[in-house]
């Protein structure tokens, strides 16, 4: 009599309620997979041979043809952002950029970071790498921008729904552990040679921490604060904007910081598919076994990394101070 009032008895509920059905369900899926492998290859040796390699090749080929419009538009947008940013940075006189960086470091971090950033940038200029450095900055900025725009909303979604989290988590694991060369090649096929596949490959590598730390930060907001927000009749959006995001901000900023650092480490790799910038110098030096040139370019990358790290790190810390 009581149970009839339940509005929905979905498939998942049925699975949960009847363990036998649950085991049969998964067993059935496993059998189906094995049978599929059998149909494609027949039984060879001890293993069922699984034609994953062929499938991926077929899939990628199919995607390239069918989704050309999608990839072209992604390419176009990324290109516009990237090129304009790079052109703008190179159009500005070097001292304007330098002063801007010092000001940003001073306002967001501290005087010490500002002095360090100014000196480091000037040093890069004296090494004759200013243009390449600007091009690298533009590449990183574009990649980080895309990573944040994608990563933070996905992080928020996976914090609010365990189901989304269960799907997103293994994807992130794959993105972080899959050797970068593996997706550099399809990126090349989808977007052609140049800077755009470099940006895309960088995003794939750099987006996971933004997602993970946003997720973590929102999940770590104490339960009673979420309860309090609900108690006063907050909408889901109000809860997010007024309580969860402000409290998760230190964690989100740590994620952004990690994203920036990871995208810098992709600079050299992306240069292999002609993404340019400081990475190109390293690749060239590698080809010519020019130790000095390689060292100089490497030093410049390290310095850029340190500047970006110090600025973004202290940003997260500063927020933390005011929230605690």
């Amino acid at each position: 009599m009581a149970a009839t009032s339940k509005p929905t008895v979905g498939f998942v509920q049925t699975l949960n309620r009847r363990p036998l059905v649950k085991y049969l369900f998964w067993f059935g899926i496993a059998v189906a997979l094995v049978l599929l492998g059998w149909i494609f290859n027949g039984l060879k040796g001890g293993f069922f041979e699984f034609p994953l390699e062929n499938w991926v090749n077929i899939g990628v080929d199919w995607l390239i043809i069918k989704l050309a419009v999608v990839f072209d538009s992604i390419k176009l947008i990324t290109q516009i952002v990237l090129n304009n940013l790079e052109r703008f940075l190179l159009w500005l006189p070097w001292w304007v950029v330098l002063i801007a960086i010092i000001l940003i470091a001073w306002r967001l971090a501290s005087v010490r970071v500002a002095i360090f950033s100014g000196a480091a940038m000037y040093f890069i200029g004296t090494l004759g790498l200013w243009e390449l450095c600007m091009s690298t900055l533009a590449l990183i900025a574009t990649a980080v921008l895309i990573s944040i725009v994608l990563g933070i909303p996905i992080g928020i979604l996976s914090a609010r729904s365990d189901r989304v989290d269960n799907v997103v988590r293994p994807v992130l694991d794959a993105m972080q552990t899959m050797p970068a060369f593996v997706y550099l090649i399809p990126a090349l096929m989808f977007f052609g040679i140049g800077k755009v596949p470099g940006v895309i490959a960088t995003v794939i590598f750099a987006v996971p921490p933004a997602v993970r730390l946003t997720n973590l930060g929102i999940r770590q907001v104490p339960g009673d604060l979420v309860e309090a927000a609900h108690t006063f009749g907050s909408t889901g959006f109000q809860l997010l904007l007024k309580v969860q995001i402000p409290l998760a901000l230190p964690s989100i900023m740590a994620g952004v910081n990690q994203t920036i650092m990871l995208s810098l480490s992709m600079v050299v790799l992306a240069a292999m598919i002609a993404a340019g910038g400081l990475g190109r110098e390293v690749i060239m030096a590698l080809g010519q076994v020019d130790i000095g040139r390689g060292f100089v370019a490497g030093t410049a990358i390290v310095l850029v990394a340190m500047i970006l790290d110090r600025i973004t790190q202290s940003l997260g810390k500063k927020r933390k101070m005011s929230t605690l």
């Binding site: 009673d224 604060l225 309860e227 309090a228 927000a229 108690t231 009749g233 007024k242 402000p246 929230t323």
Partner: peptide, 27 residues
């Protein structure tokens, strides 16, 4: 209906005034 919590559950990132005004703010 409103509620007072055992461990206060005040929003640490808001001032006392903005904490008190929270319910009115979401309205």
């Amino acid at each position: 209906i409103s509620m007072v919590f055992q461990h206060f559950a005040l929003f640490p990132h808001r001032t006392v005034l903005d904490n008190v005004a929270y319910g009115l703010e979401v309205q």
